Amino acid sequence: MATGGRRGAAAAPLLVAVAALLLGAAGHLYPGEVCPGMDIRNNLTRLHELENCSVIEGHLQILLMFKTRPEDFRDLSFPKLIMITDYLLLFRVYGLESLKDLFPNLTVIRGSRLFFNYALVIFEMVHLKELGLYNLMNITRGSVRIEKNNELCYLATIDWSRILDSVEDNYIVLNKDDNEECGDICPGTAKGKTNCPATVINGQFVERCWTHSHCQKVCPTICKSHGCTAEGLCCHSECLGNCSQPDDPTKCVACRNFYLDGRCVETCPPPYYHFQDWRCVNFSFCQDLHHKCKNSRRQGCHQYVIHNNKCIPECPSGYTMNSSNLLCTPCLGPCPKVCHLLEGEKTIDSVTSAQELRGCTVINGSLIINIRGGNNLAAELEANLGLIEEISGYLKIRRSYALVSLSFFRKLRLIRGETLEIGNYSFYALDNQNLRQLWDWSKHNLTITQGKLFFHYNPKLCLSEIHKMEEVSGTKGRQERNDIALKTNGDQASCENELLKFSYIRTSFDKI
């Protein structure tokens, strides 16, 4: 039985969820670079991206490699990797027998973001014989899940209580170790020597080791999670996991709180800001991140802002960003909400898709409305799209047979046209069989910064309504002859009103 693990408890099935942008060198404390989270699957090609990484700022997932063999891993080693800020997950990587050479110096898994409450997941690794993470000293947050690894031993010899604050939620089941077939031998045991430290858990006094050649490092209890030197002297209180010299914040392997210019500090002093819960960055760093993602459509890219001495992905609820200094300031009234469309555009074809934009005031991208039916549609669209004030790209209304009016965009005031449909149009209306009105132009103002209007096959939309939009939106004169079809717009509506004058002759039985 794995020490510190839980057996036999019912657990939810383990679901495996399925960018080499360097964020800056980590400095003297770390020998390499800070790398983003990685999802490495199918083959070993991307694994080489770990070569210079000291910190993975995010998670590391290595999974679904069915053609790899043990010899493929023999020359692979990433000794610079010290810390993973989120979680480490391995799933069905064939041929991998140990992690001792792959990650010989991995010391800390912070667990800032977890995989279903777990910071370390080893699942269905069919050839893994031992973990071998002999320098792993601290899992700051989260638990361990090690399950269905039929060859995995050296679990009962690990004292997880020396690595985690609590072992109650560890789930370590259905491994070879369960069948008591392992016969784990710690260093020196074969020669009758006791080389590794022994600890007591559940009444068992057991030597602690990761492999037959690597003991588990056990520091004096007084050192807590700070770690200790090879001689057993406690590291500085700002260290986490390990250090090369005692009581020196510049000799830590990793930091308990924050890293700044080669030393570990309790908090980031001005003019620095907390970033990702582990390091200090200056304003320029946060500003660069903001600008890199301002026009990016890459998933996970955030326009970072500053709030409460932190550089964070977005302002919290009730705050909006001051564009001059990136500071989050309290909103006066309802907060603006910028919604970034991942692929640059979004099609609204149902109430469900409209709900995804609920509360958005600025759309960074283009909207395509293609709704053919739905219950209580006008009210639903207004509830979900009615706060949109600005669209950076274009607005396209296409084959939306259920629409009679666009009044559900009740606050839309600006279409920038930074991206144009077919390279020309910022407003595009095609084949809307029941569209009769755009907006009530006596109450609604709309500016279209650039781009043209396109109207074709809107049989109940009168040309007068379209011409009014040209005047109000500032697009009059931009359109070419064929942009607004004269014969297919309003051709099934009563669009022309003329005053009919009647004269009559009164007659009676005795007068003409």
Rank of each mutant, 00 (worst) to 15 (best):
H290G: 10
H28V: 04
G37K: 05
Y118M: 09
M83K: 03
E314Q: 10
S324Q: 15
K148Q: 11
K129W: 11
C239G: 01
T107I: 15
E49Q: 09
K193S: 13
K217S: 13
E33P: 14
K251W: 05
S213E: 09
G132T: 01
G111W: 00
C53W: 00
Q216I: 03
D277C: 02
C215P: 13
H226L: 12
D184S: 08
K193N: 08
C311L: 04
L326T: 05
R297Q: 14
C328L: 01
I201M: 14
I201P: 06
T211H: 07
K129Y: 06
K217E: 09
N150V: 06
I158E: 02
S284V: 04
G111V: 00
V108C: 04
L44E: 07
P187Q: 04
S317H: 15
S324H: 15
Y171F: 06
K217R: 10
P330L: 10
S161K: 08
R256S: 09
L289C: 02
H226T: 15
W278S: 06
G227D: 10
D177L: 08
R263V: 03
G300Q: 05
P316A: 04
F275I: 04
N195I: 08
N175I: 14
H307Q: 05
N170T: 09
S112M: 11
K67C: 06
M321R: 06
S77N: 10
A119L: 00
G111R: 00
S166R: 11
N322Q: 13
F103S: 00
R74G: 02
C315F: 00
I40M: 06
N202C: 10
C335W: 15
I122S: 05
P269V: 09
V121R: 01
G232D: 07
L326Y: 01
T140V: 07
H214K: 01
D75L: 10
T85G: 04
D75R: 05
N135H: 06
M137I: 02
Q61A: 14
K80R: 10
V305C: 13
F258N: 02
V305P: 03
L240W: 00
N179D: 08
V126I: 04
C35T: 00
Q299M: 14
D184A: 14
L50Q: 01
L164Q: 07
V281D: 00
S166I: 06
S213D: 06
G232I: 02
M321W: 14
E207S: 06
T45R: 15
Q287G: 15
P187F: 14
S98A: 06
C252P: 03
E147F: 14
P187L: 09
E71V: 04
V121S: 10
N138G: 10
C243E: 00
V305A: 06
G37Q: 10
G95K: 08
K100S: 12
S324W: 14
E314N: 14
L81F: 01
P31K: 10
S166F: 09
P313W: 09
G142M: 00
F123A: 15
E168W: 15
M83G: 06
L114M: 15
L76I: 01
L96V: 10
L96H: 00
M137R: 13
Y134L: 09
D159I: 13
P270S: 04
D165A: 03
P187N: 05
F115V: 15
D72R: 01
V206L: 03
A119P: 00
L332F: 15
T211G: 15
S225T: 11
S237N: 13
R145H: 08
E314P: 02
S237V: 08
V218G: 09
L114W: 05
L44H: 09
N257L: 03
W210I: 13
D288K: 04
D184T: 04
V218E: 10
C153S: 03
R46A: 15
E168V: 14
L102F: 15
L174W: 10
D277G: 07
A198Q: 03
L136C: 04
T229N: 11
T68V: 06
R46I: 08
E168T: 07
F205W: 14
P36V: 05
S143N: 12
G32D: 14
N282L: 05
D178P: 04
F285V: 04
R162I: 12
C264Y: 00
S244I: 04
C215Q: 12
S213Y: 02
I109Y: 00
C252A: 00
D75N: 15
H48K: 02
P79A: 09
Y118R: 02
I84V: 04
G192W: 11
R145A: 12
K217H: 04
C315K: 00
L260A: 08
V305I: 08
L50A: 06
G111L: 01
N105D: 13
T221P: 04
N150T: 07
C186F: 08
V34E: 05
C196N: 04
D169C: 09
F283Q: 03
K129C: 09
S225K: 10
H28E: 13
L99M: 08
T211V: 10
N43Q: 08
F91I: 11
P36R: 10
D75F: 04
V144P: 01
I84Q: 00
I201D: 11
V200W: 06
C182D: 10
V121K: 00
E97H: 12
G95H: 11
L233P: 06
L155V: 10
C35N: 00
L99R: 00
S77R: 10
E130Y: 12
V265M: 07
C328P: 01
C228I: 02
